[in-house]
């Protein structure tokens, strides 16, 4: 069984990718191929941008099952309409019309169970890709126009090799279902925040979520020096582990901007990353 660590934030742009990528790079020196980084921000996956020379090994097309109603067999009994909780099935007996509205379909299969006349079969619609890179990065990428991001995260997780010691999951921003899907299998969650009112507000939402689903977590404060001190007070009052404090650094921000993060990690950031690496290795019993 792998040990899974998710990196999440609530607010976007706080530094999830920076933390995920630098943590991965540092751990790779210790664990080699036994660690993988999985980019679960399928709407906007960015981790691959920081591995300029990474080669794509292979990819999987991820498809959603969409039912099709064959009107030659359909008796227009409307049982499938009754079963569909998402109002995705339209059946009009008077004009012998039956159709599934793919954009409303959740692929639950209820209409297939409902139909007693074998009039419904399924076809597939592309929702995204899972890309496997030689650097140990696995990335989910949603097809532009698809609204099935949560289903893609779920499918992406099935493509993570089971024999790895450590899996790092870079989560999407927000606190909705796709974030829950990402953190649900994590043994530990690293929350990345920034010391601003927006950062703190969204951090509180994430803390509430993780407590509800019972996940242990700690917080990294990124861009410290910006904003105010309220986040530290919150962590202190709530007894939350402060895993690290990454100072705001314009040179580092500029390197991040051009996609060059791994070659020039400033000392202060490297030391924070080394600290969690050490903690993680201890947790793994290594």
């Amino acid at each position: 069984m792998s040990y899974n660590i998710a990196i999440a934030s609530g607010k976007g742009g706080t530094g999830k990718t920076t933390v995920s990528v630098s943590l991965f790079q540092t751990l790779r020196k210790e664990l080699g191929g036994d660690v993988v980084l999985v980019d679960c921000d399928v709407e906007e996956p960015n981790d691959a941008l920081f591995f300029a020379n990474a080669k794509l090994l292979h990819n999987n097309e991820i498809k959603q099952r969409i039912p099709i109603i064959h009107t030659d067999k359909c008796t227009f009994c409307r049982k499938c309409v009754e079963y569909c909780e998402f109002n995705a099935v339209v059946v009009m007996p008077s004009v012998e019309f039956a159709e599934v509205n793919a954009s409303l379909c959740h692929s639950c299969g209820a209409c297939l169970v409902a139909c007693q006349f074998d009039a419904i079969t399924e076809t597939e619609q592309l929702i995204g890709q899972v890309n496997h890179y030689d650097t140990g990065l696995i990335e989910g990428k949603l097809t532009v126009g698809s609204a099935m991001q949560t289903m893609l995260v779920k499918e992406l997780k099935k493509h993570i090799p089971a024999n790895k010691l450590l899996v790092l999951l870079d989560a999407p921003p927000g606190t909705s279902c796709q974030v829950v899907e990402t953190v649900s299998d994590a043994d530990y969650v690293i929350l990345v925040t920034e010391p601003t009112p927006f950062g703190l507000h969204d951090l509180k939402l994430m803390v509430q979520l993780l407590r509800e689903i019972g996940k242990p977590f700690g917080v990294v404060v990124n861009k410290s020096g910006l904003g105010n001190e309220e986040v530290y007070q919150f962590l202190d009052d709530d007894g939350i582990d402060l895993l690290g404090n990454i100072p705001i650094n314009k040179l580092f921000a500029s390197n991040y901007a051009k996609g060059d993060l791994l070659n020039n990690i400033p000392l202060e950031i490297a030391s924070v990353v080394n600290q969690f690496t050490h903690k993680i290795m201890l947790n793994l019993g290594l």
Binding site: L49, V144, A257, G259
Partner: peptide, 19 residues
């Protein structure tokens, strides 16, 4: 924002808005 991530992400967004 002028980062590779910002550019990569906005390209996907532009494709969506264009549709």
């Amino acid at each position: 924002e002028p980062t590779q991530s910002g550019l990569h992400d906005v390209k996907r967004l532009v494709e969506l808005v264009r549709s």
